[in-house]
Nucleic acid binder design. Structure first.
Lengths: 196, 196
DNA sequence: CGGCTCATGTAACACGTTACATGATTCC
DNA sequence: GGAATCATGTAACGTGTTACATGAGCCG
């Protein structure tokens, strides 16, 4: 339902499948993920539908690339997807369903689970903070005078910063509740952050 | 990777496929969704693997049901999934990828998009607040003296309450930034909440 | 009797993951 | 020459969605 549209969005600038995979990793990896083996056939299909055009081009390093360009029809398909409004309530958050059933394992394990969650969110938060710091130092227009294309990217980044900061706090709150039960059964559990 | 485990979790109490669908809608719909046509074959497969057992039972209304019960092996499989730690970085948030490319449509449309987002998050927040209010009024142990099974459910609920409250705020912030651009091009746009 | 909810499924298709296959170029 | 990276794909399998099929029991 969405990968083809994400590819159309990423192809505002022409790129090969391999390039697109890198772009995924650098930009949208916090809310979208795709394998190369998924990207290649998706691009081929979009070309067959006339939403993309491709040409062979030599590479700086390695074998020649197949560079895809968005057609007018491709751009309109993307705009239509965006104009249809947000795609909502399709999220699947496996870690929350796990938490929902976490009473099926012993409390000490529950605490380990929440620590792992907290550490991962904290790490993502640091990664995003770094991106924001670099951006701020490299672009004088940051954050209030950005052009439209950068503004929406910054809004996306802000949502990640706010979300992960909140999730870390929430994990701490949960750990407090779990640990108070641990203590009452005679055990004691360090609250130290795991190093990864 | 996960639906079978979610079903095992939901089957702490025996139920039919149809019952489970109802349970999905009442409890985990905010972070997991499944169609009946996905649930039935998944249950059959779990039974074939010996993680569930089934028996026919009459229904209050309508035809007879196939009631599934978790086996010891099924419970261990669930505990193993939970003990392996949180399943992370598998999220796919379509609305954030849309936002990321939102500069491809006119600013007026961008504002409509964010209003729709905000309204949906606000609605989810109200739904969760209602659940919390009802719970608080029906259970004297709420929220600090809940048994383990309810504690993890409450932690899950809290994450939703905190998340959607934050997302509504974030949407308002984004709308402010988008509308300030709208005004500077001579248009004016009401900030009123849409009624659904 | 007709329409609703209850109840269980199948079929066709789309989407996503893991493993495998192939070969060019670059760096050590 | 061997390992790493660049580059494009296919195959098999698992997961998820939409549409369709079937029939029991209940309410008006």
């Amino acid at each position: 339902m969405s990968l083809p549209h994400v590819l159309l969005g990423m192809l505002a600038e022409p790129a090969s499948g391999y390039d697109l995979k890198q772009r995924f990793e650098q930009s949208v990896r916090y809310f979208w993920y795709a394998e190369l083996s998924q990207i290649y056939p998706a691009l081929a299909k979009l070309e067959k539908q006339g939403l993309l055009r491709s040409k062979q081009a030599p590479s700086d390093k390695g074998p020649s690339k197949k560079i895809y360009t968005r057609t007018g029809k491709g751009k309109r398909a993307l705009q239509e997807w965006l104009s249809d409004g947000p795609v909502l309530r399709t999220e699947r958050l496996a870690y929350l369903t796990q938490l929902f059933f976490l009473d099926e394992i012993p409390n000490a394990r529950r605490i380990e689970f929440m620590q792992e969650l907290r550490d991962d969110f904290a790490q993502r938060l640091e990664e995003l903070k770094l991106i924001e710091r670099n951006w701020a130092s490299e672009d004088a227009r940051f954050p209030d005078n950005l052009p439209d294309g950068e503004l929406v990217k910054h809004m996306t980044l802000r949502s990640g910063l706010m979300k992960y900061a909140m999730m870390v706090e929430w994990c701490e709150e949960c750990l407090g509740r779990l640990e108070s039960r641990q203590e009452s059964t005679g055990h004691r559990n360090s609250r130290n952050r795991k190093v990864s």
